[in-house]
Write a protein that binds this DNA or RNA. Sequence first.
DNA 1: ATTTGCTCAGCTC
DNA 2: GAGCTGAGCAAAT
Length: 117
Amino acid sequence: MGKAIKRRGLESKRQILYTLLMLIPIGRVATYDSLARAIGTSPRAVGRLLAINENPVIIPCHRVVKSDGSLGGYTPGGSMVKRRILELEGVKFKGRKVDPECIIDITDILGINREEI
DNA sequence: ATTTGCTCAGCTC
DNA sequence: GAGCTGAGCAAAT
């Protein structure tokens, strides 16, 4: 399985993105950049995909934050709600930003999936 | 910590 | 086919 991504249409990327989102552990958050690199696109594209997505219930888009730890955007409800959800998940906040320790790289998840657990 | 500029991808005209 | 907008990023101040 090395290359998980192939040059498919948007469909493929979206699918993968959703999967990765669901792979993010509770109490942790991933960055747009990480996801973008994972699926082979740019951070903005990820944001766009998340924005257009219409099932926030099964898609934990709230677990995606900016590289700086800032919340970024959140269409259903706003950043306020996003922060609230994250806190509920157990994510610690450092003032206005997410605690760096709670931010994980998606590649790390894949790594531990292969070695540990 | 805050501000500015740039970049990349998707969407619209 | 060309232009605009944006759920961001990086660098500079």
